[in-house]
Amino acid sequence: MPTTAPAFSDATASDSALRRFLHGLPGVDAVGLEARAASLGTRSIKTTAKAYAIDLAISMIDLTTLEGADTPGKVRALAAKAVNPDPTDRTAPRTAAVCVYPDMAATAVAALAGSGVKVASVATAFPAGRAALDVKLADVRDAVAAGADEIDMVIDRGAFLSGHYLKVYEEILAVKAECARADGPDARLKVIFETGELSTYDNIRRASWLGMLAGADFIKTSTGKVGTNATPANTLLMLEAVRDFRAQTGVQIGVKPAGGIRTSKDAIKFLVLVNETAGEDWLDNHWFRFGASSLLNDLLMQRQKLSTGRYSGPDYVTVD
């Protein structure tokens, strides 16, 4: 059973205690935060550093399909791509995971067996999260039972925005409990805040701490289903949160920006954020992920350019 990090056990003793704790976190100045993110975005990553970053980024992708039209065929194709992203170059690293809906988890597990690529499943009535707790927990149970290695849950933004922090916290605890497996490793839990709906940076910081206190293994920006998803600024803010949390508790937590990251240039900027904010301990797909789909092909084209010296084109990467 997960428990709150001991350093902060008081913070979650009651709704009011949790509110006091979250509202006592330092504020975020929006202009300064965005300026810092933009400034790190001007880093110039070239040659060997670029090659390193591209491979690292590929290895961090949660290759995602979350469509109503998903079929086992689509999921298998994606799984094949995850294992062997560039058919012309077998040295390309595998992605970190394939991310699907719970009913596709079993298909993905079968397709990826033995590959080392993880299966992540969204759950908890993704993306809105507007369902009864029992329904959400059943969703999680299904995915875990199907063999998902990782669960991407959404928080109850309505409860968060109306100030019912303890409700959000307890829900995460409950989901975390469902991630446990008696006969194998627990599923790792990614907690999605849907930052675009939280609206303020102060809220994103509070949500980050709330998620970490509740035992999240990863904190994740967004579902990819709303207008604003991962941005350098909100990801920077979450990287600060995991950095500070580890400094205070010794517990390391991962970060996953998701949605809207489509180019290699963007991905490299995020890796710079990781490198210069949380530090190199997070430069590993155990601790940092990209929730993305089209990003992979752009990384592969850039990778081809680096190895051949020629610019590549969309016909030289696979459409899946």
Binding site: D29, A30, V31, S199
Partner: peptide
């Protein structure tokens, strides 16, 4: 004094 950010992240606050 900083005003809200330019909204590049969908948030100005």
């Amino acid at each position: 004094h900083p005003t809200g950010a330019l909204g590049a992240s969908g948030s100005s606050y």
